[in-house]
Design a binder for these strands. Structure first.
Length: 305
DNA sequence: AAGGGCCCCTGAAAGC
DNA sequence: TGCTTTCAGGGGCCCT
């Protein structure tokens, strides 16, 4: 369940290992994890490429490559840009390691793509739940899954950090939506990067009930939510993410935000602020955790016009 | 536009 | 103890 802080942590840990490296060989062990090309074509497209940069947009990782122009891979010459997209979905991992490294039986069994780099190291795509994908956007028109991913990427909402989301804009976005807050925060076209864990944590910190309609928030509530989103994300990134499930960063390390979780994964346990048992409901098929007292439900008496 | 349901998939945990 | 069922979740897709 990598969300923005986890993907960002992966980007930061992997970046220094990958940027400047050349991909010597690609082994696609399970073709279903590469979209846009068959296993051989995928390897052919990527082998010989040099990693220019590692970027993130929402929960997508973007591996920016430069490949030798034309078909021949020879001496220095003209190059072309090629951006590979990776979406880890809920259990994908990108692990940088030495070739002899043993990740254990489960992860070894689910190692689906292996990139061998020119310094003798490896980048392995591991995915126990089989939801993630690596997208190769080559050719014109091309693979429908790649097209879909590109459209999703294009339609992502603003990045909530680093000035990507201004207060005025956020306030307007909330006011114009009739949806309940929890599913709205999960909507990647609304804001990019929040997932189930951080949505719950943000709503708790803001003291806002997950079922409240976005447009019903008072200015003060909206402001609290805006600030909660920033605080939670910055803190989670600082602590290298949350590892309640499978997440590890590019070097196999777990995150430390688990201990800061106030509602997620704590149903029935006392609220850390008021002692009321944390509630758990299901919304849009996703578990939602909140404190019934700190996050009061709809206040009809204050319903806006 | 909103919201529900189903699906993908597997391992861990809970239930019997 | 061992087998079976349930659950978790990001996001696409379909239907109302």
């Amino acid at each position: 369940m990598p969300e923005l802080p986890e993907v960002e942590t992966i980007r930061r840990t992997l970046g220094p290992r990958l940027v400047g490296r050349t991909i010597k060989r690609v082994e696609v062990r399970n073709p279903k994890f590469v979209a846009g090309a068959g296993p051989e074509a995928f390897a052919r497209a990527v082998e010989g490429a040099r990693v220019r940069a590692l970027e993130r947009r929402g929960k997508f990782l973007i591996i920016k490559l430069e490949v030798p122009a034309g078909d021949g891979h020879s001496s220095p010459g003209p190059t072309e840009a090629l951006d590979i997209l990776v979406h880890l979905k809920m259990a994908g991992q990108l692990v940088w390691c030495r070739p002899e490294e043993d990740l254990g039986p489960t992860r070894t069994k689910h190692t689906h793509v292996v990139f061998s780099l020119d310094d003798g190291s490896e980048l392995r795509y591991v995915d126990v739940r089989h939801f993630g994908r690596i997208y190769l956007p080559t050719g014109h028109g091309g693979d429908p899954f790649v097209r879909r991913a590109l459209r999703t990427l294009e339609e992502l909402g603003p990045e909530p950090r680093e000035g990507g989301l201004a207060w005025d804009e956020f306030r307007r976005m909330l006011a114009s939506r009739d949806a309940r807050l929890k599913p709205l925060l999960l909507d990647q076209s609304f804001i990019a990067g929040l997932g189930n864990i951080y949505s719950d944590e943000c709503l708790f910190r803001a003291g806002v009930h997950p079922l409240r309609k976005a447009s019903s928030l008072t200015e003060e509530e909206a402001r609290r939510l805006y600030e909660a989103i920033h605080e939670v994300l910055e803190e989670a990134i600082r602590l290298h993410g949350t590892s309640v499930r499978d997440y590890v960063d590019g070097e196999g390390r777990r995150g430390e935000f688990d201990e800061r979780l106030e509602v997620y994964g704590r149903p029935g346990e006392p609220c850390l602020r008021c002692g009321t048992p944390i509630a758990r409901i299901v919304l849009g098929g996703r578990s939602t955790h909140f404190c019934p007292r700190c996050q009061p439900a709809h206040d009809e008496s204050r319903t806006n016009v």
